[in-house]
Amino acid sequence: MTTKANGEVLVKVSGVDKVFKRGSEEIHVLGGLDLEIPTGEFLALMGPSGSGKSTLLNLVGGLDRPSEGAVEVGGKRIDQLSDRKLAAWRARHVGLVFQFYNLMPVLSAQKNVELPLLLTRLSAAERKKRAAIALDIVGLSHRAGHYPRQLSGGEQQRTGIARAIVTDPTLLLCDEPTGDLDRKAGDEILDLLQALNREQGKTIIMVTHDVHAAARATRTLHLNKGRLSASPIDQ
């Protein structure tokens, strides 16, 4: 699915609270949070550690559920889906990019990229073909047969991005995608994300600590003490 920024709201977070329990102690990470993300936007989420950036990302990606409030993606209340339906929804609509790549060490780059396609009804030949296309998009066709331990950090993250886009998801969620990379490799990853946003219209939410990385996004929001703002106040 290719989309362009068109003002249509893709992600709508309404009055979301998130409370974690540690023993008898309750930790309020997000409180009454509202957020709308239009289709085709490249949003950078910044904020200090523990501000709730990753928690918000997890809620939007259906990896966690809010304590209160609603999360809608593409007009669908994902917080009300059963675990089973939520897993299927994630597989179909969300591409995840992790800080530490989270590749399967026993699989080659090609097989890692094919992983999400195992959740589809595609034939082995079709899976292979689509994984090859995804690897080509991230410029790693020549490393398809290599295992994660044989790849540099930047190459591993490219593989992670290829895995995230291989199902052509609506939404790309990136949690500190350059956090484990040097500046050069980080820039290459940001170039890639920017290209995916501009050329393929992917809606991207990127959590980052890095101002330099956030500058690549079309909008930056700052999260502090569970509240969003357009500027880094109260930090």
Partner: peptide
């Protein structure tokens, strides 16, 4: 843990 959590995040079921 990482492997299992990643697979489940990608959409693999329990």
């Amino acid at each position: 843990t990482l492997e299992i959590a990643t697979l489940r995040a990608l959409g693999f079921r329990s």
